[in-house]
């Protein structure tokens, strides 16, 4: 039995705007017959203002498909086409208080129907580019298609990066085998296409999942933030985040006396300043408290506190500083 929210139940049992809209001048018809969903979205658009004055739907599908369709109509009525197009499938899911991971595709169908209806209104042809794959990560509702797209777009080559970008594997990690398989096969295809070098490609079994520490926070995968992009540009050698023990054991450049303490602190401050705008974008911040040997004490604030992704952020910042100073460092968060 699915764990549907009360809102989903409400919009399923008593859907708003179900039926045929006779005066519709924009119609979107989408569906995936294999998974048993089809949706016809009908809109009445004011030609002067491009405001959606009425919306109705007909849906062949499960409870959450009907609820998502109804929610979509409620969200878009009164909006201009431009504003309506900004709505994502996550907005539909959020409106319903969330959907089970296996059911997120229902909200995607609503999103696609809207795109199709607007294209229909504008006399354009709407092409479906949505590909669904087998659900890999049940904790965060990430399917094989999403992983493949993230791997290709960002040239990911390690399972940890996949978790970082998509959240897949950030929960119970029982999907590791499947995640690894998707990564390896995508990398193999990328090698054939000349997108990455053969030696960069991930090899099945080359990572021990017991070593993976990355945990993602609940909620569906959201679009990458800029800090993710920054971290994606790390040199390939640093792509696998070294465990703290390895960092501590590495020969310390500081002990060779190449950097004075003042130089070191200045570089650390500079590095942190480069990262802070990205943290702020996500509603967080960090500040340097102290440096002791190779330990850098920072205080995380705002959205960073209590965020389960904080450890990921710290790892990323740590790598950035390591690259900048050319010496092993360990970031220690203090409260």
């Amino acid at each position: 039995m699915w764990d549907y929210t009360d809102k989903v139940k409400e919009y399923f049992f008593d859907p708003k705007n179900a039926g045929v809209l006779e005066e519709a001048n924009a119609v979107g018809e989408v569906g995936a017959i294999s998974c048993g969903d089809a949706l016809k979205l009908m809109l009445a658009v004011d030609p002067e203002t491009e405001v959606i004055t009425a919306a109705k739907f007909q849906t062949f599908g499960c409870g959450s498909a009907i609820a998502s369709s109804s929610a979509l109509t409620e969200i878009i009525i009164g909006k201009t086409l431009e504003d309506a197009l900004k709505i994502s499938n996550q907005d539909i899911a959020d409106f319903l208080g969330g959907l089970p991971p296996e059911k997120m595709h229902c909200s995607v169908m609503g999103y696609e129907a809207l795109q199709a209806a607007v294209a229909n209104y504008r006399g354009e042809e709407w092409q479906d580019d949505h590909e669904e794959g087998e659900l890999v990560c049940k904790c965060f509702g990430v399917d094989a298609g999403m992983i493949e797209r993230a791997v290709r777009a960002n040239k990911l080559t390690t399972p940890e990066q996949v978790t970082f970008y998509t959240k897949a594997g950030g929960g119970c990690l029982t999907c590791f085998d499947k995640l690894e398989e998707v990564l390896a096969s995508t990398n193999a295809a990328m090698v054939t296409e000349g997108l990455i070098m053969a030696e960069e490609a991930y090899r099945l079994g080359s990572v021990d999942p017991r070593q993976l520490k990355t945990k993602a926070k609940p909620g569906a995968a959201k679009p990458k933030t800029d800090i993710d992009q920054v971290m994606a540009k790390r040199p390939p050698t640093a792509s696998a985040m070294p465990p703290a023990s390895a960092v501590a054991a590495a020969p310390s450049l500081a002990s060779t006396g190449r950097l004075t303490t003042v130089q070191k602190i200045r570089l650390i401050e500079e590095g942190l300043e480069e990262v802070r705008p990205f943290l702020k974008k996500d509603g967080g911040d960090c500040e340097l408290i102290d440096v002791d040997g190779s330990n850098v004490y920072v205080k995380l604030s705002g959205a960073c506190t209590g965020c389960q992704m904080a450890s990921v952020t710290i790892n990323g910042v740590q790598e950035r500083l390591i690259a900048k100073l050319g010496m092993p460092l360990r970031i220690v968060p203090v409260s």
Partner: peptide
């Protein structure tokens, strides 16, 4: 509520979703 349904024993012929 179904776009495929157009009445008893009749499938809606005008419904052609993009799959």
């Amino acid at each position: 509520m179904s776009p495929f349904w157009a009445g008893a024993n009749e499938k809606a012929k005008d419904f052609k979703p993009v799959y």
